[in-house]
């Protein structure tokens, strides 16, 4: 089971800063282990950020995003009590989804 997605939202007047940390190895398929074996690619291919069930951001990623990807986004008109959800799927079919209620 993949680790929890950390979601933070900070309302600053009209604009809200959203930070998302997805814990994932993001293996490029180019690294080798200590025995010289190539570590297979393992990376998040797609994720969505949604607000009260409506999409905000749909992202597609490559292996070149850093390990444990950290993203920041901005949205307008977010209110306390709104639900912010993030879901990802990786190239091996693993997925994870988490939701927070904005304070």
């Amino acid at each position: 089971m993949a680790d929890q997605i950390k979601i933070r939202a900070q309302i600053q007047g009209e604009i809200t800063d959203i930070r998302v940390l997805m814990q994932h190895p993001m293996e490029t398929g180019q690294r080798k282990d200590e025995r010289g074996q190539t570590l297979p690619m393992h990376f998040i291919q797609a994720f969505t950020v949604s607000l009260n069930g409506k999409p905000l951001i749909d992202g597609q990623l490559n292996t070149s995003i850093s390990k444990n990807p950290l993203f920041a986004f901005k949205a307008r008109g977010v209110k306390p009590g709104d639900k912010l959800a993030v879901a990802w799927t990786d190239n091996l079919g693993d997925k994870r989804q988490d939701e927070i209620t904005i304070a």
Binding site: K54, D58, G59, K74, R76, V78
Partner: peptide, 9 residues
């Protein structure tokens, strides 16, 4: 990366 924005984003 490629990101699509909709709604309030």
């Amino acid at each position: 990366a490629s990101l699509d924005f909709s709604g309030a984003a």
